[in-house]
């Protein structure tokens, strides 16, 4: 909401479609994310929300439609996708830290190989990012020695070290033990407060309510409803949205 009108959106999805064989997972997604905006994407499992996120940085190739990152059509055949991906940070459900590398090396390796940063600068940046997520003292550990929450915070630091213009979070807390969810959400909330553009697929309704500028409810491959959290959670327009929220909130209460 911070961008002035007419500015180039950070992410612009236009009639995005994705099929796996005969199964059509995304059936025409339109979504504009302005710079600095935080969008939470909610929906039942299998509704296509992870696929949507994976299409943004082309881990999945859309079947049709366009994906524009800061005005650049990344679905164009001549687009250098590696350069675009370097500007789009992604955090995975399963953390996906490089298990053969130390925490510090996890955060420096892409800075050096992709951005061409000198080693010393990459290390300085890594330390700054690890400090930000509160894990600088773990720099020499291997990922297997960290808790899930710590691993996910390192994964966030790794993505941030690339100076991304957008961060994608693919159910970043879903694989964590309940007591570790908080520390990751806290880091994500701080990031949001600092003005990072964020696209967050999540089951954490509390986080969505507090942090999102807009919440998009995905159902059967389309964005059924998209509005500010207060509106979507308090007075959903669609019956399906209402039923989904009811199910989720029941679970949270029981």
């Amino acid at each position: 909401m911070t961008a002035e009108p007419g500015a180039v959106p950070a992410v612009d999805l236009q009639d995005l479609r994705k099929s796996f064989g005969r199964l059509e997972v995304l059936r025409g997604i339109d979504l504009r994310v302005a710079a600095g905006e935080k969008i939470c994407i909610i929906g039942a499992s299998g509704s296509g929300k992870s696929t949507l996120l994976r299409c943004v940085n082309l881990l999945e190739r859309p079947t049709s439609g366009r994906v524009l990152i800061e005005g650049v059509d990344v679905t164009a055949p001549d687009c250098d996708i590696d350069r675009v991906r370097a500007r789009v940070g992604m955090v995975f459900q399963q953390f996906n830290l490089f298990s053969h590398l130390t925490v510090e090396r996890n955060v420096t390796i892409a800075q050096e190989t992709v951005l061409g940063r000198p080693h010393d600068l990459a290390v300085d940046t890594a330390m700054a990012m690890l400090r930000r997520v509160g894990l600088e003292e773990k720099r020499h550990e291997y990922p297997a020695r960290l808790s899930g929450g710590q691993q996910q915070r390192v994964a966030i630091a790794r993505a941030l070290a690339m100076d991304p213009s957008v961060m994608l979070f693919d159910e970043a807390t879903s694989a964590l033990d309940p007591e570790l969810v908080g520390e990751v959400l806290r880091v994500m909330r701080e990031l949001a407060d600092e003005g990072m553009t964020m696209l967050v697929v999540t089951h954490e309704m509390g986080f969505a309510r507090r942090v999102a500028d807009r919440v998009a409810f995905i159902d059967e491959g389309v964005i059924l409803e998209e509005s500010p959290p207060a509106e979507l959670f308090e007075s959903p327009r669609e019956e399906r949205t209402r039923r989904f929220l009811q199910r989720v909130l029941e679970r949270d209460e029981s």
Binding site: L59, R85, A86
Partner: peptide, 13 residues
């Protein structure tokens, strides 16, 4: 694991 490749590619490698 496939996630290792995906993480690497998502960082621009």
């Amino acid at each position: 694991p496939k996630g290792q490749t995906e993480a690497a590619r998502s960082l621009g490698m």
